[in-house]
Design a protein around this nucleic acid. Structure first.
Length: 490
RNA sequence: GGUCGGUUGACCGAGUGGCUAGGUAGCGGUCUGCAAAACCGUGUACGGCGGUUCGACUCCGCCACCGACCUCCA
């Protein structure tokens, strides 16, 4: 099939045809999380967006190297390039080694990503494992004249860079304006200019994560890791760089500056940015404290949650909106997504039960074409879903006997839905174990409720019988002050 | 204040200068012992005011409101 994948390149602000540098190979770099606390709903967005892209490119036949970093050092609390490292701060708080913090939250992140059925990246490099590479890049930047050392710290000379290149092109900033309205912050005396950013920071004596370098014992600046690691694993010039919209400035702007300064050329060919998930209209972010973690979403344990939502509901919910639109969290929207996802999944199962006819009254090929067109149009999953639901209606109509399909078309349908629902959108059926666990807990609620009714009517024989019968199958009921709880004693 | 984006029916969420997006919920119907599912049908939706046009939700201008970034953030 002939494809014409268009993606929206944030750098030029329009949809452009996607043509890899070295087909069939595609290099994809995505900014991963800073691992200092649990992953929240906001983290699911880029993970799913770029998982979708990874899956689709692979489906189209590209050989994709998908690199997503883990930031485990160097991410400071504020722009003054002063203060605690986010991870170090958490380590002090929890009385752990910084790397223990990293290990803990990295594991949680991976588990959550697995639950959301995102494919693991080809390479998942960590900043702390690439100190040498980052130092080498700093040397190159200094050699090119765009880095300067002050008291053991190295800063990027934005002003000088902007004379030859264009600092601010990605985010639409003009350097002069940036300088004009930048607040004066503590700890910036070392910089020539308030817009300069740290490439290397000298560590204070109490700082825990630090490495030797030609300039000082210290640690790399946050923006540097992505430049260093993308170059290392994808080459000096690579195809796609993705991340959240909130990283455009300053993070990605600085990355562009670093790579361009060091290499004398642009590193990234296509920039892609997913939009934010909002809660009550405001961005969900750890620093704003208005976030719901993925674990909370899956368990339902959060005051804003009316019920637990399984990972596939979250995935479907995110795919229902286009990745460049904001989407607002609400129970109502999630519940609608839950129903929709179930309807879709059920229809996929129905395909196998269809009875073939000698003629088809529906046009599967046209449907297939529309599905590819939707994906080719900058990964337009909401439109893709609308087409798939058209297919769902067809499937159910055939099952009802209102429409007919041939054997060949049934196979087409099966392939189409397998490819798009499972392969590309990455939805999956809940495992029978998960269904079993959920069902058990719901059934127990019903039983306990019925027993409670009996107790209130003082029908002790009935309530005792329920408890004894359950005991025999290994379920123990305990009437506590807070209510009846149950446990399995198998 | 600067830059950028948004405002679509009960809710979520696409999209287009004239032709049904889709999902969820609601209502009516088919089916059915009842219910559910499924199918069929159903809603003066496009922030306000002007302008361009044969025709605008879709283009232009102004206004209002909301948000993102300009500090760390997915």
């Amino acid at each position: 099939m002939n494809h014409n994948l268009q993606i929206y390149n944030s750098l030029v602000r329009e949809k452009v045809p996607f043509e890899p540098l070295n087909p069939p190979f595609v290099g994809l770099y995505v900014c991963g999380p800073t691992v200092y606390s649990d992953a929240h709903l906001g983290h699911a967005r880029p993970a799913i967006t770029f998982d979708l892209l990874f899956r689709y490119l692979t489906h189209l036949g590209y050989k994709v190297r998908y690199v997503r970093n883990i930031t485990d050092v160097g991410h400071l609390e504020n722009d003054a390039d002063e203060g605690d490292d986010k991870i170090q701060k958490k380590a002090k708080l929890e009385n752990l080694e910084p790397m223990e913090v990293v290990q803990k939250y990295m594991a949680t992140f991976h588990r959550n990503m697995d639950q959301l059925n995102t494919l693991p990246p080809s390479i998942e490099p960590r900043a702390s494992g690439h100190i040498i590479e980052q130092q080498e890049l700093i040397k190159k930047i200094i050699d090119q004249g765009y880095g300067y050392e002050v008291n053991g710290s190295v800063y990027f000379d934005v002003n000088k860079y902007n004379k030859k290149y264009d600092y601010g092109k990605l985010s639409g900033r003009v350097l002069e304006e940036l300088i004009a309205c930048t607040r004066t912050l503590e700890g910036q005396e070392e910089k020539k200019n308030s817009c300069d950013f740290a490439l290397w920071k000298k560590a204070s004596p109490e700082h825990l994560m630090k490495w030797p370098s030609p300039w000082s014992e210290g640690f790399p600046g946050w923006h540097l890791e992505c430049s260093a690691m993308s170059i290392k694993y994808l080459g000096e010039v690579f195809d796609i760089h993705g991340g959240g919209m909130d990283l455009k400035f300053p993070h990605h702007e600085c990355e562009i500056a670093q790579s361009t300064a060091a290499l004398g050329k642009e590193s990234v060919r296509y920039w892609m940015h997913n939009n934010m998930i909002t809660i009550n209209g405001q961005k969900m972010a750890r620093s704003l404290g208005n976030f719901i973690t993925l674990d909370q979403l899956f368990s339902g344990e959060h005051e804003l949650l009316e019920q637990p939502y399984n990972p596939m509901t979250i995935r479907f919910f995110i795919l229902q909106a286009h990745y460049r639109s904001t989407m607002d969290f609400s129970n109502e929207a999630l519940q609608a997504a839950e129903k929709g996802a179930q309807k879709l999944m059920k229809a996929v199962e129905t395909i196998d039960k269809l009875k073939p006819s000698s003629k088809s009254s529906i046009d599967i090929k046209a449907l297939k074409k529309k599905c590819y067109e939707a994906m080719d149009d900058d990964l337009n999953t909401p439109v893709l879903l609308s087409h798939l639901f058209e297919g769902v209606r067809c499937i159910n109509s055939v099952a009802d006997g209102c429409e007919t399909v041939t054997e060949a078309d049934i196979n087409e349908l099966r392939t189409l839905f397998n490819d798009f629902v499972f392969g590309i959108m990455g939805l999956q059926k809940e495992s029978s174990q998960e269904i079993g666990e959920e069902l058990t807990s719901r059934l127990m609620e019903i039983i306990i409720g019925l027993r409670q009714d009996a107790k209130e009517r003082k029908e002790w024989a009935v309530s005792d019988k329920i408890r004894d019968k359950l005991e025999k199958v290994g379920v123990t009921l305990k009437d506590t002050k807070e209510g009846t709880v149950w446990e399995v004693g198998l």
